[in-house]
Design a protein around this nucleic acid. Structure first.
Lengths: 210, 210, 210, 210
DNA sequence: CATGAATGAGCATTCATTCAT
DNA sequence: GATGAATGAATGCTCATTCAT
């Protein structure tokens, strides 16, 4: 049994080749699109295949099964977050407050760009295997780590209060996510820019020394 | 026997056919239990019936179909929130800050008591019909309304900054929910009490006038 | 997981009720018919359902899955063998040779009556789970046991040579099965009656003392 | 090395494009191996290709489809039988009894050497097309023909009773096959050598004149 | 010759829902 | 009111087969 699975896994095409990369992207994009809109459970593999313009069978050559596809989709989204945050922080210069602000802003922007995908992440994480869950926990921590460090710098330089940095960045990330989670509500009375600025104001007030 | 007496008692108390009410509760509790643990899609109606100790057919006589049952479960949870908040605020006295604090505390306590149910609410809302969705939006607003009013009082008396009260209570509620949503992470380094106090400190700092 | 399976198993209808017994028979007969003709792997559950005049789903309430259905079919056939042999031997009187002969004759008759089913048994046993395999081994041994005892009696009374009784009955059963296994060939030049008598002659010659 | 020499020898013997022959063998051996172990239906063409160290596509250039491959495998096994029997009989000298014995012995030895393959033959014959089925019937008859002739000689010289030679060789062949078919049972209480000698004793007793 | 990516029909299994009792 | 046997549409997944390279 285990051997059979190994064989099948091995047959999944190697990741290096560019053609393979293109196919993976194609499937991943289709899956993200359909699953974000329809929800994981309500999404039929056929629907993903249709959206990608390929056959069902092919999906199974790139992703072993539906759960693996979900994991890949979520990881793909989270990697995007993780990769964009450091760049934005670096670009913000040396001031810890500026860096902290930049961290929040980029999070909100990415959330806005991938609103449905973020919702998918929230809703369907519990479907993942323990290993998959561990993977995304790790990615989320990696994502906020640069922001957390910026906050710690601020504490060191005396602009921020010495509160638990883990809670601070957790709050920060969730406030960003709310733009997706409660979009139906929030977007009724503020634009993205207003949301970002007002929340940033609250966020900074909560941690700044008086 | 004891049951027979209960039935008669119940009939006296609430004239609205009590047997129906009891059945509804029985099903609702079973559904909440099973769905919270297993997730909506992974929950079979049979499993709910088993848990409630009745037949599948009976569920359909009280709740038209599976989606309606989900809506009822979520509404039931949210009504609990809505009903508990005002009492806690009233009990906190007249000071707006005290009332605001009490609002946050009760939210966290209810979340902790119904951790899985809160997660269910977050994950499966998107499954609901537009009408159902509207219903729960309304309930959520009703829930935070007393807290929002306490905040507005604080603004009026000059202890709180005049920021958008809708965002403030949204953040407050979210932070309470995080105790359920990210429990696997947060609970690793803080207890509920510590979480409540530290988050309260951040929350108040974010809105207090300096 | 294990619990979930248990629950499902438990839901499979209790065997006592006569209605249930009738359904089981109905499905079993249909499955035997279709699988014997088409082969196990080539048989779709839908085909069994069609043949039985019921829906696919119902099969799964009586037999957990396709493999279990196969086991039930094979066991059903073998139980028939096991139940018919002792009666025939008893009816043959006290003479060991007569009893031995009767054992062979009844085997051939049952094989002839269930030719396709016997072939199914031979072909698909290897598909069974270890537990299922053990079950049918046991049934086969129970079937030949009365014949084996008749043979041992013959050895005791001095009419049969003292050779390994297990091999003798194995050969006996095999020769009976050959009427099904090689029917396409054998039936071309002998009738069942001729086959039985000629093979019986060989069989007795092989074990009789000279 | 030995293989290389064999290859060269083969090339000298049969000029018919040796590369093709080698490929056929390679695929046939792989298919026999995998199908015997796993069963025909449970064997994926990919698995055969993997075992042979080639691509799936190539199998289809040598054997039209999966059923044809099965036929080729079974024929290959049966040809092996057919080719080994005459040699063994010839080597046994002129005595009909000796020749008959030699026929049984070689059958048992080949069965033992190709136990799984023999089982495959039994289990999967019914999958074959009518034409294929005819082919293997013919091969089986060819296989036992030399043994049947030895028996007839014995009848002519008066050592064997004049019973239907077709039934006799059929029994003989099946008893040999039982070593494969019921190996799990028989091998528990006799070795191959014991099995051969004891069955031979029964076989001879069944046909010898007294 | 040889490859293996791509296809898509086919099948086991589940489960929401109904309805006769 | 209450049951649970019966239905059958829906879906994940496999694998024989093809064909462009």
């Amino acid at each position: 049994m285990a051997q059979a699975i190994d064989e099948r896994t091995a047959r999944r095409v190697a990741r290096t080749d560019s053609r393979v990369q293109r196919r993976r992207r194609q499937i991943l994009d289709a899956a993200t699109e359909v699953m974000s809109r329809t929800g994981f459970h309500a999404t039929a593999m056929q629907a993903v295949a249709d959206r990608a313009g390929i056959s069902v069978g092919l999906i199974y050559q790139y992703f072993g099964n539906k759960d693996d596809l979900l994991l890949a989709v979520i990881v793909d989204i989270l990697e995007d977050f993780r990769d964009q945050v450091p760049a934005a922080i670096t670009a913000a210069g040396d001031d810890p407050v500026r860096r902290f602000e930049a961290g929040f802003r980029i999070c909100c922007q990415v959330v806005d760009a991938k609103r449905h995908a973020v919702n998918l992440t929230y809703r369907e994480s519990h479907t993942l295997s323990p290993a998959g869950l561990e993977r995304i926990k790790q990615l989320e921590l990696e994502t906020v780590e640069p922001i957390r460090l910026a906050f710690r710098e601020g504490v060191a330089t005396g602009v921020f209060r010495d509160v638990d940095s883990r809670l601070v960045v957790q709050n920060l990330l969730l406030v960003a996510h709310v733009w997706a989670l409660k979009h139906w509500h929030v977007a009724q009375f503020v634009t993205l820019e207003q949301y970002v600025e007002q929340e940033l104001s609250l966020l900074l007030a909560s941690v700044r020394v008086r």
